[in-house]
Amino acid sequence: MTDRSTAAILLLPPDGVSGTRKALSMSLWLAALAIPTLVPGYTPLANQMVVMILFALSLDLLVGFTGIVTLGHAALFGTGAYTAGILALRLTNDPLITALCGMAAAALVGLVTGSCMLRTKGLAFLVLSLAAAFMLHELANMASSVTGGDDGLQGVSFSPLLGVFEFDFRGHTAFYYSLACLFAAFLLVRRVVNSPFGWSLRGIRENDGRMRAIGCPIYARRLAAYVMSSALAGLAGALQAQTTQFVALNSLSLELSGDVLIMLILGGSGRLYGAFVGVPLFMFAQDLLAKEDPANWYLGQGLILMVMTLFVPGGVLGLVERLRRNLGRGGRR
């Protein structure tokens, strides 16, 4: 590393990012800070979004940057959520300790399942990711004395954050806490994807055979990405448990794995900000469509996916980028 301190390096934006984009990014974060003051009624919803953005960001590391398509990412989210919830009921309800444990547990599950699954690819990997998540879901359902089974873990409460900030009923502490975690995770992921390691992940995504032929240990590299993504998904799960004081069996489900994939794709994968765009869009659409009949929401999601894959590859951010490029070209002419 150069003479700059690690902290300074982590905070600096990567080279080659334009000024407008930097300003846009900064104002986005600042605007998020103002949510509890400006629209207090929406703070719990905003918190939910922040948690899902973190979850989708963790998936982006796999799907967008490494080209690993998993159908069982909820397994890791659920692991984090259950770890935090069970610890709080039985051992300690300190939010930071349980969050770290949730991350560690998810990373461990990621290491164990990933080290098996990543030996395969294509259909076998897809089916293994489904099977692994399915098994965890079943196990959690069966071990109802520990996990609450179908009813989930109810009434999980946590001590004040850092011993000072109570988790209040308006959800302000919860929101700022989640937002801080998301910001830290975002800085970390941004660093990582702009490092030689992150570039090598893109290389694997583009052409894994060629990466092997330049001497890259693909399996180890993929596994590292998988474990990192697992830890972040676990953190998202732990935050979910802490800020909603509830862990649902649904947090391990195939539906959640599908939802988070759709959120990411909707925003645009492999772009870092895809999760930030996709999650709010998804949740607003859900709010709008699911009110009358859940069937409308299924239809909405299905149409989103079809339109995305057939006409808008690259998600909303990809679309914006293409429009801007076309406009730029038109302007110069």
């Binding site: 150069t2 080279d15 660093r191 490092s195 030689p196 390691f197 090598s200 330049i214 890259c216």
Partner: peptide, 20 residues
């Protein structure tokens, strides 16, 4: 760069930007 990074053993650098 991907090939150079693998060969010179910097491809495991997680936190230093590639551009540097």
């Amino acid at each position: 760069f991907l090939a150079v990074a693998e060969h010179e053993g910097v491809a495991w650098n997680l936190f230093r930007s590639a551009a540097s």
